[in-house]
């Protein structure tokens, strides 16, 4: 998994987002044990206490749960994972729309452009270009 951090937000909130992405993308599959805090912290290059804080938050949200001695596991609740996926998608869409509005596009234009881009994308794929 690739970990990337921006400079304008707390590290623990960025860790929450990235572990969520990992769960939604299946890098951390439902019901599977998560690597230990130390392993995850080393991999992400972050302070172990910060990683611990992020995982505790995910636990409060229910996306992961701990079993006292066995460690932390990803939820098996597909509905919850789908909700997290939707939440992440909404964030991307929101920031995309904000950027387009700043460029001066109107809402209909944004939808049209998006549609055109998606159609071109599928045409390229189907013609093998």
């Amino acid at each position: 998994m690739r970990w990337e951090f921006s400079n304008d937000a707390p590290i623990y909130t960025q860790l929450i987002q990235q572990v969520k992405v990992g769960i939604v993308a299946g890098i951390f599959p439902p019901g599977e044990r998560l690597p230990s805090v130390r392993e995850l912290a080393t991999e992400a290059g972050v302070n172990p206490n910060t990683m611990q804080r992020a995982l505790a938050e995910l636990e409060r949200d229910g996306l992961v749960y701990s079993q006292r001695t066995a460690g932390r596991f990803v939820t098996e609740d597909e509905i919850m994972i789908q909700a997290a996926k939707r939440g992440l998608a909404q964030r991307h869409v929101k920031s995309f729309i904000e950027a387009m509005l700043r460029l001066g596009f109107r809402q209909e234009e944004i939808v049209a452009l998006l549609k055109q881009e998606i159609e071109e994308g599928t045409r390229d794929v189907s013609t093998g270009m």
Binding site: N7, D8, A9, P10, I11, Y12, N47, T50
Partner: peptide, 15 residues
Amino acid sequence: SVDGIREEKGMSVDA
């Protein structure tokens, strides 16, 4: 704390 600075100032410790 590092995240305290990032939270309050909206910038990295380096900045």
